[in-house]
Computed example of a mutant assay.
Amino acid sequence: MSASTQQRYGLPLVARVSIVAAFLEAFTWAGLLAGMFLKYVTGTTDVGVSIFGALHGGMFLIYLAIALITAITLRWPWRVTALSIIAAVPPLTTIPLEIWLRRRGHLSC
């Protein structure tokens, strides 16, 4: 990426892709949780679980791949890499992680 492109957007492309993946992973988690509520608590429908279950499963794998690519590209310490992988497991944790990564400077070159 050229210096002018990075200045224009503020972050390298891999960092921006990582942020989008984190938000999509959290969004699909939220959808899956809502679907589980509808299925198990209200007993109304299981459509949300079937739709968001598949979406979240795919997004989870995509997020993990992007986290590893970002870690290698931006040369993260192993602890930051491990934290980014672990953050995909609890619901909605990838968003606070990405905020922390940005504040600590781990998303810049």
Rank of each mutant, 00 (worst) to 15 (best):
T93Q: 13
A65S: 05
G58Q: 08
L38W: 08
L33P: 00
A34D: 05
F27Y: 11
T81S: 06
M36G: 11
I69T: 10
F52Y: 13
A87V: 05
T42L: 12
A26K: 00
S84K: 05
W100V: 02
A3N: 10
Q6W: 12
W78I: 13
I95M: 07
L68M: 03
F23P: 04
P90T: 01
W29A: 12
L11E: 12
L13F: 13
L11R: 09
W100L: 06
V47F: 07
S50E: 15
M36I: 05
L68S: 05
V20S: 13
G10M: 01
T5R: 15
P77Q: 00
G48M: 00
Q7F: 11
M59N: 10
Y9H: 14
D46G: 12
A71G: 04
S4M: 06
L74M: 02
A26I: 02
T70Y: 02
L107D: 04
A15S: 10
F27I: 11
L13C: 07
I19A: 14
V41T: 07
G53N: 00
R75A: 10
F23R: 06
T81F: 00
V49N: 04
F23K: 08
V49Y: 03
Q7A: 14
R75N: 09
I85R: 09
T42S: 12
W100G: 05
L83D: 04
V17K: 00
P96L: 08
I95R: 02
Y9R: 15
A30F: 09
A54R: 14
L74V: 06
L33K: 06
Y63E: 01
R104T: 09
A34K: 00
I86W: 12
R103N: 10
W29M: 14
T45W: 03
F60H: 03
T94E: 09
R104C: 06
F52Q: 04
S84H: 04
A67H: 03
S18W: 08
I95N: 10
G58L: 03
M1I: 07
V14S: 06
Y9K: 15
I72T: 14
S18P: 08
A71S: 05
R104W: 09
A87R: 05
L64A: 13
V89N: 07
T44R: 13
I19S: 04
T45V: 03
L83C: 10
P77S: 02
T73L: 08
A34Q: 09
L33M: 12
I85D: 11
R75W: 07
T70F: 06
Y40T: 02
L32G: 03
T73E: 14
R79I: 12
V89K: 05
L13Y: 11
T44D: 15
W78L: 13
K39A: 08
A21E: 03
L107C: 01
P90H: 04
Y40L: 07
S84L: 07
L92Y: 11
T42F: 09
A88Y: 08
P96A: 01
L61H: 02
W78C: 07
G105A: 00
M59S: 11
R8M: 08
I66T: 03
T94N: 00
D46W: 01
A22M: 07
S4P: 01
